[in-house]
Design a protein around this nucleic acid. Structure first.
Lengths: 114, 114
DNA sequence: ATCAATAGTTCCGAATTTCCGAACTATGGA
DNA sequence: TCCATAGTTCGGAAATTCGGAACTATTGAT
């Protein structure tokens, strides 16, 4: 297994962020992660309510999020810990992530973000 | 030629906005349009400095921008007038467009946005 | 009215990207 | 060592994107 790539803060490209978050499934995963207290493992985030994302697709979603700079992943034993890089990111792109999550939140059909 | 489709404000989807603006060429076009005083025709926006976008690609870019709700296009004689819907959009998704344009603007290699 | 020029759209095929099942890899127990 | 668990990689079918060539709409000239 190749080591996971994480871009340095200054290498993060806005187009990659926007692209990553232009997929509602990915946003849902990211939003859960952003609001999560603990875990943040892949499997814990696989269930979107209306659909369970296949393993390989999920893995790819995490890869896109990771390589765009949105999240940090690290192996912890047999599972993978994921956490957002939102503090860093907000430094680089002020207000961006918040505006995006707010935009999605305003949409009907997202009753709880628990 | 099919009539041009413009989504109603309430039908605009954040994923469409993010997708449309996840392409640097499209952002460049949009930013020019947002900063433009007059024209806003396709051909006037085709020249990005480093490359001249082919007609059909350009037409497609405008279609993506239009159908995502970012711009309004209307025929005026032989040409097409395009204008941003940024005021409306900011009402629906507060701060979003500004944060995105700011994020792109901070990138090196975009010396002038004239 | 017809013709030519201009501005942009549509069509369609090649190249690229996405999606996901199946096979594989890494780690931690029993 | 062998098994179970969590996730990654492979590979090919399906969907998307890109852009040249052909087409359409409008204006102006003859």
């Amino acid at each position: 297994m190749r080591p996971l790539f994480h871009p340095a803060l200054e290498d993060i490209k806005p187009e990659a962020i926007l692209y990553a978050l232009s997929d509602p499934e990915r946003v849902a995963i990211y939003a859960k992660l952003a609001g999560a207290s603990g875990s943040g493992t892949c499997s814990a985030l696989a269930d979107l309510g209306d659909r369970v994302i296949p393993k390989s697709s999920l893995s790819n979603h995490f890869k896109v999020l990771r390589e765009s700079g949105l999240i940090m992943s690290e192996r912890q034993g047999v599972e993978m810990r994921n956490q957002t890089r939102c503090t860093e990111l907000d430094e680089r792109f002020p207000g961006l992530i918040k505006a995006i999550l707010t935009a999605y939140g305003q949409l009907p059909g997202q009753p709880k973000t628990d």
